[in-house]
Design a protein around this nucleic acid. Sequence first.
RNA 1: GUGGGCAUAGCUCAGUUGGUUAGAGCACCAGAUUGUGAUUCUGGGGGUCGCGGGUUCGAGUCCCGUUGCCCACCCCA
Length: 442
Amino acid sequence: MAKATFQAPRGTRDMLPEDLVLTRHLERTARAVAVSSGFAEIRTPFFEETRLFTRSLGETSDVVSKEMFTVPSRAAEGKKGSRSSYTFRPEGTAGVARAYVNGGYAAKAPLQKWYYLGPMFRYERPQKGRERQFTQFGIEAFGATSPLLDAEVVDLAVRFFEALGFGSELEVRVSTMGDSSDRDRWREALRDYFCPQLEERCADCQSRFERNVFRLLDCKVPRCVDLSAEAPQLAAVLGEEAADHHEAFLAALRVIGREPVVDSSIVRGLDYYTRTVFEVHYPSLGARSALCGGGRYDGLVEEFGGAPTPGVGFAVGFTATELALKELGLPPQEHVADLEAERCPCVFVAAVSDAERGSVFALASRLRREGVHPVVLDYRGKSLKAQLKEASKSGAAYTVVLGANEVAAGTAVLRDMAAGEEVALPQAELAEHIASQVISSA
RNA sequence: GUGGGCAUAGCUCAGUUGGUUAGAGCACCAGAUUGUGAUUCUGGGGGUCGCGGGUUCGAGUCCCGUUGCCCACCCCA
C-alpha cells in the first residue's frame, strides 16, 4: 500500500466521478420536483452563528448537545459572548428561516416556497447510512397555516421518491405535536407521569427523560412499553385549533390519494416542530426504512426576531436515499443513461506516429469547436495500438485516425468502434458526419 | 459516548498447528514480423503484510498497545 499520508476526515468521503452519476441524478430530480410545485432555490451559508442552532433546535437536543462542528470566531477571540463561535450547519431549516427574516419577507411577501440542496455537518460516529458530512435536500414553505400546505409538502416528498423509482410501498406516517403551548403542557404531563417510574425503566429511558421525554413513548423494551401504557395522551391537552388543523391535514392527504398512516410514535428530535410532523417510509428497507422527515414550525421565524410567521417543510438525506436506491436496484438504467454517457468520449483522435501528434491536437480542437463532444486524445506518446485500446476502454463511439497520408490529403479515417467499420473523409466533413450518425442512431 | 468485527499489491482476497526469496484473480504497462481496439497468448512493474513494542532460533501468522475502517446501540437525514 502507498505510504499512509493523508486521508479524508472521518465520516467524509470523496465523491468520485463514478459516484457522482447517482448523486447528480438525485440533485436534478430534487430540483425538478421542487420547481414543479413552485419552490425556488435558496442558498444560505454553510456555517452560522452557533446561537442560531442552539436557539432553534434546543439546547438539549442530541444535535446541539453533542453533534455540532463548532469553530471559534477570530474576531471574538478573548471576548465573552454568544457570538464567539460559528457552527457548520447540522440541518437546513434554521439558516433558511434566518434568511427569511433578514430578507424582510414577512412584511413584503410573506408566502415563500423555497428549496435547498447542499452539505450538512454533524459530529457523529459514522456508520452505515450516516456520515459527518452529508447532502440534504429540503424545502420550506413560509407564510401560511393552511393544512393544504402541509399536505402539499408531504406530496412533494413522496413525488421525489416516486420520481426516483420507489414504488407503491411508500408510506406516509404522520402525527401532530400540537401548538407549542399544547406541547409544553404535554411535556409536563409526561414528566409528572414518568418521573416516579424512572427507576424501573431502562437506562436509555432514564437519559431520554432529561433530553426528550417524548422518546419514552416509543421505547421498545417490553417492560418500558408496559409502563408507558397509561401515559398521558396529547389528545387530552391538544387545543381545538391544532386538532382541527390535524384533521384537515389528514383529509387533504386523502384528497390527493396519499393515504396517511397515523403514528403517534413519530416524535421529531428537534424542538421547533409544532402541529404536523411526518416521515416517509419504505417498510421493506427494514431498520433504515425512514427516507425523510419534516413538519410544521410555526414559532421559528418569530424565535429569530421576525414577525410571527408559520412554516412547514421537510428534509431528506442523500446518504440513506442512495443506499436505499442501491438496495432496491434503482434507479432504472435509462434514468441515468445521459449522465453515464457524459463520462464516455464521443470521439478519440489518434495519431499513427509522433509526427501526427500536432495534427491530432489541432483536429481535436477543431471538432470541439464544431460542436462534437466530448473529444479526447492521448498525451502520453502511446502507440496507435495502445490509443485504440484506450479509446475502446473509455467507451468512445468513434476513433479518428490520422497518419502521414491523411495529414497530407487533409482527410481522416473515422472508425466506428462498435461496428469496427472505417470510412475516410475530408477533415472538414467529420463533424457533420458524426452528428448525423449520432442522430440517426438515437 | 457504549459494544463488536476487520486491517496482506491500485481493487477483491488466499496464506495451512509460527519455518526458507509473501501468492492468485482483476486492473495497469509492454510485446506477439512493424497504420488499428473489445477475445487470446507471453512478459513486466508494484507489497518494509496499518503503525509501535513484546514472546521466539525464527512472526503476515501468537500477546500488548496504538491508529484507521466497518457494523450495531444511542440518535437521526
